[in-house]
Design a binder for these strands. Structure first.
Lengths: 246, 246
DNA sequence: TGCTCCGCGTGACATAAGTCATCGGCGGGC
DNA sequence: GCCCGCCGATGACTTATGTCACGCGGAGCA
């Protein structure tokens, strides 16, 4: 995977500008801005492309600004001394990233990398600051999306503190089945987009435990695994398992 | 512990008003307000007293507003189905509580209870909203304190995901030693303000493991325990243990 | 003074989590 | 077609975590 990130310098090409404005218009926190305001912001935003796996910034790097996902998906994660990773969030087009560290002056609290090829818009700290002061509604919107972020983090803490890997894995499967599952005669079918290593990072454990727990769920008849396709045979029972264990 | 919370209705007594204004003046997010603005806010704030252990609100309760700690200390925590608790934050005078859920319309994501007798000021959702729109700097201040909160949550996730109970316990002791330890000839002396059950909730584990790990640290010569006083005999070595284990 | 409740320490287990090593398959690149 | 590297499965262990049960001792109360 060669490092082939290309940084455009503030939109020298007009079509790029338009593109940026369109992206920004779809971002919740900028939803209340007028077209001219969006255009202005788009002009100051810098588009950067990242290839799959490439790091956008690292935990501890000084925070120079925030990003908006234009296309692709990014993951926000922490890395342990031993090399393990814990995913905090995955965000797709329209999501803002690192809205918070922009405000408290500290470094980025976690790393961000592209999961697939990505196009991100970078908005500098100062620009964003000025925008918030000029448009109080933007701050409120930011607070709203940050609220959601905080809820998710609390959810992760809850899961890590109270539940087992098995439980978290089931939770993940159930969520996937509900959100993007395809109904079949035998149940619901889902496709895992990532390898076991990545699943482990999302669940806060290691590769082997994901593998073992998946096998066990299959042995118990809850699912049938075919490569990265998972047939959830008894969705209701699987959800029941979530309640069962304390 | 009888429920002896008393709700004053919007400050009918003048001295209470003054009191509230003084409290509010010390809250970071209101630091930029003028005296008259503070007075106005104080007039609309409702003071409520809570006795030690009493719950302020519960996880899942509809969010009607935010609180400011006037005196005492509160704890923010999650409760598991099995009755275990995980502390997310402990906040003293001047801290704001539940600034975030106010904005995203959801319920309170965690419970809050008084650790010691407390006096809190309640500020309704609408009042706070209006304030933020009228004073954009307030939003920015809120974003700053929320940033700190998010960092702490990420830190908790990191610890839960990557480290052992022993490691977290050592971390807690080291932090206490640095923040409120007293130097003696033999090392640093700290006093635990709470019982093992509470320590366990702060570390995300159970009473027994706290007890065992403390005993083990003593057996290893790192600390000497006398009731709730802990002599940290070799502070440097203890800090070294934090790096050692992955 | 005696009793009871609470907090604490511990032993004995059961089980979950994580590490290390190995094996087999599949697919991409040469 | 062949080789190599990534990925997944799995066995064998070690260690951490959590549960249950029990005993001790001090503080507070009748």
């Amino acid at each position: 995977m060669g490092r082939i990130a290309i940084a455009y310098n503030g939109g020298t090409m007009p079509d790029l500008k338009t593109d940026s404005a369109q992206t920004l218009a779809q971002v919740p926190i900028f939803a209340s801005l007028t077209e001219s305001e969006l255009a202005f912001l788009a002009q100051r935003a810098v588009a950067r492309n990242f290839s799959a796996g490439e790091q956008v910034f690292g935990e501890g790097d000084p925070c120079t600004g925030m990003y908006v996902v234009s296309s692709g998906t990014i993951r926000i994660y922490k890395t342990s001394a031993g090399g393990r990773e814990q995913v905090l969030s995955m965000d797709g087009p329209g999501s803002s990233v690192a809205e918070l560290p922009v405000f408290d002056g500290g470094a980025y609290p976690a790393s961000v990398a592209a999961m697939a090829d990505c196009r991100l818009l970078f908005i500098s700290k100062n620009d964003f600051h000025a925008l918030c002061l000029a448009h109080p509604e933007v701050s409120l919107k930011v607070l709203r999306v940050v609220g959601a972020r905080l809820r998710r983090l609390v959810g992760i803490i809850e899961e890590l503190s109270f539940t087992t890997v098995r439980h978290r894995l089931i939770g993940l499967l159930v969520r996937l089945a509900q959100r993007e599952g395809t109904k079949t005669e035998t149940g619901v079918e889902i496709t895992l987009q990532v390898n076991n290593q990545e699943l482990a990072a999302q669940l806060g454990t290691v590769r082997e435990l994901v593998s073992r727990n998946l096998s066990r769920l299959q042995a118990e008849g809850f699912i049938r695994i075919e490569g990265r396709t998972v047939h959830v045979l008894r969705p209701k029972d699987l959800e029941g398992e979530l309640e069962a264990a304390g």
